[in-house]
Design a protein around this nucleic acid. Sequence first.
DNA 1: GACGGAACGC
DNA 2: GCGTTCCGTC
Length: 148
Amino acid sequence: EDRKVTGKEKPLLFPDWAYKPAWSPGSRQVQLWHFLLELLGRGEGSAIGWGGEWGEFVIRDPERLAKLWGERKGKPHMNYDKLSRALRYYYNKRILHKTKGKRFTYKFNFSKLILVNYPGYPPPGLQVIITSLQLMSKPPVLLLFHFI
DNA sequence: GACGGAACGC
DNA sequence: GCGTTCCGTC
């Protein structure tokens, strides 16, 4: 019942994964896709950056990204081989897919959705019109903005 | 590099 | 459940 939309709006159809809380009380671990969005939101100078298409991103420095992820998770031996296995598990969950033929390039499966309570969101240069709702709950849930 | 099975930990 | 580790295969 935490995740129910408050008010009288008719239910909006967002993918389940979009409702996952970014941070939970206590010790719940960061998820990889949260971490990726966090870095992407920071923009320049990162090991990862937005690609040409909507939701697409390019890993500019795979081993550096892996190292950062390993630091966050307390896994000093993390590398791109292992990180990319975790990314591949996202294919079946419909969180990500691979941009075929483009090296180190993946794409988030949000279509007209962006998740905005990460630093730097939305990415600069994007025109957004907020049509959607804020999901209020404790712990804080991702804010969902609807692009048109 | 990219893929996905398998065993494993927490 | 969400990766981590390892690895055979293309």
